[in-house]
Simulated scan of single mutants.
Amino acid sequence: MESFGLNDSQTNWNGGQRITLNAGDTATCTTLRPGQIYGIFLYNSAGNDNNVDVNVVWSNSKAPVKILVPGTTANAGLASMGFVSGSDTQTISISISSGSGNGQVEAWLGSVSMPINTSGLTNNVLQANGEQYQFNKYSRYFAVPPSKWMNLTIVSKITQFISCQFREANATVFVVNETSNGLLTGQVTSIGPTASEPGAVTIIPTQIQSVSNNLQGDGSQWVWMDADSVQDSSSASISLQSL
């Protein structure tokens, strides 16, 4: 299996790049910006059905936050996501405890500016032409919509397809074809006071095979990232249309 992390147990994560963490490993980012919300994308990549706890340290005065990343035997699970604001901390670190056996996760950071290092991801402009573009697991799309109304549409035939939209201090989690049980407990975790404020992280579910959301550009950047597995993303698409 190809790894995008470092062999050392301490990884410089300032680029927000796609990395692989094993038991005993730690990755640290020290470049979070005030006024911007960041998503920590975590996939269980151990190839077994053992759950993995990822520790997120964001404050010297607060206890680490644990995010559960469910196991999967075919690297087919959904992402677990943690959201943190650069207004609360400039530095975060993620780690897997050394006692986690063969625990392993893939991780990267998402925001309007992250990852700076897009190794292991596809990073493309989302053209506002209404065309449907493939929205696979490792996709990141970005756009700077003009000051007019636009329509975003995400389509998936798979149950519970999940993706995330970033806009400076806000994140929106889209859930297409939501199940009756909704999101799994711990699948979306807000970390720190700013990310926990109402409106900082919004979840928009639909019970149909698409979600449509109108947005109004203002010259700032918007970003969309997949938070689902390879198999669940095989038929997913994203489109942006000028209204």
Rank of each mutant, 00 (worst) to 15 (best):
M1D: 06
E2A: 14
S3D: 15
F4R: 14
N7E: 14
D8S: 15
Q10Y: 12
Q10D: 09
T11W: 03
N12I: 12
Q17P: 00
R18P: 00
L21I: 08
T26P: 07
A27L: 08
T28W: 06
C29E: 09
L32T: 10
I37C: 02
I40K: 01
I40S: 01
F41H: 11
L42I: 08
Y43E: 08
N44M: 03
N44R: 02
S45I: 13
A46V: 05
N48I: 00
D49M: 09
N50C: 07
V52M: 00
V52T: 10
D53I: 10
V54Y: 00
V54P: 00
N55S: 15
V56Y: 08
V57G: 05
V57T: 15
W58E: 04
S59H: 09
S59Y: 07
N60D: 15
N60W: 05
N60A: 12
K62D: 14
P64K: 01
I67D: 01
P70L: 06
G71R: 04
T72R: 10
A76S: 15
A76P: 00
A76F: 10
G77K: 03
G77S: 07
G77W: 02
A79R: 05
S80I: 05
M81H: 03
M81R: 03
G82Y: 05
S87L: 09
D88E: 08
D88H: 06
I92K: 10
S93K: 12
S93T: 14
S93L: 03
I94D: 01
S97C: 08
S100C: 04
G101C: 06
Q104K: 15
Q104E: 13
E106I: 09
W108P: 01
L109C: 03
S111P: 02
S111W: 08
V112L: 00
S113I: 14
T118K: 12
T118V: 15
G120M: 10
V125T: 14
L126T: 05
N129W: 06
G130Q: 05
G130Y: 07
G130C: 04
Q134Y: 13
K137E: 11
V144T: 13
S147M: 12
K148L: 12
W149F: 11
L152K: 05
V155C: 05
S156V: 07
S156C: 07
I158M: 14
T159Q: 15
F161M: 04
S163L: 05
S163K: 06
S163Y: 07
S163E: 02
C164Y: 10
Q165C: 11
Q165N: 09
Q165L: 11
A169H: 13
V173M: 10
V176P: 00
E178H: 11
L184V: 10
G186C: 05
G186E: 01
V188W: 02
A195G: 04
S196Y: 10
E197K: 15
I204S: 13
P205T: 07
P205Y: 07
P205C: 08
Q207T: 13
I208T: 13
G217W: 00
D218N: 15
D218A: 12
W222S: 04
W222H: 11
W222I: 11
V223M: 09
M225F: 06
A227C: 11
A227K: 10
D228T: 13
D228Q: 13
D228K: 04
S229W: 11
V230T: 14
Q231C: 07
Q231P: 10
D232M: 13
S234A: 14
S234F: 13
S235H: 11
S235K: 12
A236H: 06
S239Y: 03
S239F: 04
L240Q: 01
Q241G: 09
S242T: 14
L243G: 02
L243I: 09
